[in-house]
């Protein structure tokens, strides 16, 4: 155990020395990783916020299906019954014409509007709420389809027709984020593996000497893996820092534009776990890049 710790310390020192001795190349590698992760992170931030809104949207989702005039009480109950059998539906409440009228009267200015009107102009309706786990744009779609096929329903309103388009935009952002991420990750891999390879060549003599005095393959190679990983992690931290600063500088400026995208939900930055993912993503890219360089290099 002690021996492992000692060797680990030596390897870390050697990795740091490696970065020091090729400071410019290492700096470029770190900067590249930081820029790539910055772009990926910015995309992720947009997606996370859009997704957050989508997640919240269900909570106050209320669907109202207005019934045609002239249905009997029994027919109305039957309709309510049938709607409640739709797989995504949690609860259905039948609101009769009379109840609708009373409700409207209770609203501000409602009584005044109804003054002078003869009879009851309001239709009966079904108040529908979805099962909590189905309060998604998809769940809403399923309900809409089911209601379409039911005779006796005049009109459906949920006041959030925009949500499907929004969900599409969010998934488009996510998909293009993945595509961009893949391209940037590949570019980063190339840059890191190139940096590490240059380091390997620059220190070839040293590595040969280490091998001649009995250093194992791991002892010779591990510092380069560490170096790549470290470069990646530093790049990740930098990217996160810039994103954080940018987020706090830009969000107040863009209040109105953001309100358009996010409604009245507050834009949020990455949580700790998400931030760590970005950093370890950088570290992972660095590790892979240096692994690729070592595999291409034989001695």
């Amino acid at each position: 155990m002690r021996r492992v710790a000692v060797i680990l310390a030596i390897l870390v020192r050697s990795a740091l020395r490696g970065m020091q001795s090729s400071a410019v190349a290492s700096g470029i590698a770190v900067a590249t990783i930081a820029i790539a992760l910055l772009l990926i992170g910015a995309f992720a931030l947009v997606v996370v916020n859009m997704q957050g809104l989508l997640d919240r949207f269900g909570q106050d989702l209320q669907i109202t299906a207005y019934l045609e005039e002239g249905l009997s009480k029994a027919e109305q109950s039957l309709l309510a019954e049938r709607v409640s059998t739709v797989e995504v539906v949690g609860r259905v409440r039948l609101i009769s014409k009379q109840q609708a009228l009373e409700r409207f009267r209770a609203t501000r200015g409602g009584a005044a509007l109804l003054e002078g009107l003869e009879g009851n102009p309001l239709p009966a309706s079904l108040d529908i709420s979805l099962l909590s786990e189905r309060r998604t744009p998809e769940g809403l779609g399923i309900l809409n389809k089911a209601l379409d096929g039911l005779p006796g329903i005049a009109e459906v309103a949920h006041g959030q027709e925009w949500i499907e388009g929004y969900a599409r935009a969010a998934s488009l952002a996510r998909v293009s984020g993945y595509a961009l991420g893949a391209v940037l990750a590949l570019a980063t891999l190339l840059i890191v593996s190139n940096t590490i390879r240059l380091g390997l060549y620059a220190r070839e003599d040293e590595l040969e000497i280490l091998a001649l005095v009995g250093a194992s393959r791991t002892f010779v190679r591990a510092p380069f893996l560490l170096e790549g990983t470290l470069q990646g992690a530093i790049g990740g931290v930098l990217a996160l820092g810039v994103l954080w600063a940018g987020f706090h500088l830009l969000v107040p400026q863009l209040q109105y534009g953001l309100a358009f995208f996010l409604g009245n939900t507050e834009p949020r930055f990455f949580a700790v776990a998400e931030s760590l993912k970005l950093i370890s993503g950088g570290a992972g890219l660095g590790l892979l890049g240096s692994l690729a360089a070592l595999m291409a290099w034989r001695s």
Binding site: R2, R3, V4, V6, I7, A9, I10, I209, L210, V213, G214, A215, S216, F219
Partner: peptide, 11 residues
């Protein structure tokens, strides 16, 4: 020292 480093001798 490298001779001893490679066998993991404490610093």
């Amino acid at each position: 020292g490298v001779t001893l480093d490679v066998v993991g001798m404490p610093r």
